[in-house]
Amino acid sequence: MPTYQGPVSDHFNGTHFFDPDGVAPKRLGDVWRWQRTRKPAKWPAWQPSSYADTPPQRVNGTAARFSFVGHASWLIQAGGLNILVDPVWSQRASPFKLLGPKRVNDPGIAFEALPPIDVVLVSHGHYDHLDLATLSRLTTKFSPRVITPLGNDLTMQAFDRKIRAEAFDWGDRIDLGGGVAVNLVATRHWTARGLFDRNKALWASFVLETPAGKIYAVGDSGYGTGAHFRRVREQHGELRLALLPIGAYEPRWFMRDQHMNPDDAVKALSDCGAQQALAHHHGTFQLTDEPIDEPAQGLTTALDAAGVARNTFVALKPGQVFEI
């Protein structure tokens, strides 16, 4: 598999990417310790959502529509464009067809019900965000632009040369047309597809500029000191809405540097200053040890403790829709 080659920067040393404000991923010994000692909550084999969305073909004007597909996958419709974020329609978030985390509910939009997809945003290379089979299906049906951080394009095109992958660095701004643009911003995370390619590609979150306002789409992130979220506020100004992860956080000794829990996510909302937030990264794939319903319940508790109105930060179920 070819790997990214490019100039050294403040977050690339010539072979590996790093976050100057973050921490290195856990060592393999820590992974083994977690696997050896973990006591995961038992998830149901199947917990379907009672919702299913059939989106309109387009959303124009100053409106925006957010459809929760499940886990970290969203359909954003704004400015006449249809944008998928971290689309996963596969049954497993895994390199294997018969092993690894298996979804416990169907995608909130049936693949056949998708409107014409113009753009796909892929935040990083972990299997629950970069799903090659889904990207190939989308390419065959819609041939969208695929915007991703540096190095992930090589993974995509090695699988399917027809995937229209375009790779960018933190700080880059890409015009998508229709008065919509996307900015890649630093996030507190890491990436890998296997045991020997850690951080050989970049990871990012996205700030979308749309006629409905700016939308901050965070794929995966730890909280840290909150600096990443405050920096987005400083650099990009008022945010209309943020998509923030709230799940895959236990045990904290292992996960806190890479995944937020609900308390962290509420602090991140305050730091980034978005008017509204929608939660994700919960309830579809069991990646870590907390119970399936704990993130959504914990979000309510965290909002109450912080004195934030519950309708300011909402956890949807797959197939539910939020409109502005």
Rank of each mutant, 00 (worst) to 15 (best):
D106G: 03
A192W: 06
G177E: 11
A93V: 05
Q35E: 11
P55I: 04
A201N: 06
Y4E: 05
P56K: 05
W203F: 06
H124Q: 12
S50F: 01
M1C: 11
G70P: 08
P144R: 12
T134K: 02
T312P: 05
W190F: 12
T225R: 05
G171A: 08
A201P: 01
D264A: 09
T140G: 04
W43H: 12
Q47W: 12
A302T: 13
T288C: 15
T62H: 06
E238C: 00
L99K: 13
N183F: 03
L316K: 05
L75M: 10
L208K: 01
I174A: 00
W46E: 06
E323V: 14
P245C: 06
G226C: 10
T54N: 12
T225C: 04
K141Q: 08
G70N: 06
L81G: 13
G226H: 07
T148N: 01
V146T: 15
Y216D: 01
A277V: 04
A158K: 14
S221Q: 02
G100Q: 11
A309I: 03
V232P: 03
E166Q: 12
R173Y: 02
E234Y: 08
F68C: 01
W190Q: 03
L99M: 15
W32C: 00
K317W: 13
G237I: 04
F111E: 02
P44M: 13
K42M: 08
L135N: 05
P56M: 06
T191H: 00
P149Y: 00
H281Q: 04
F17E: 02
D53M: 02
V180M: 11
P40I: 12
W190S: 13
G151A: 06
K317D: 14
G226M: 10
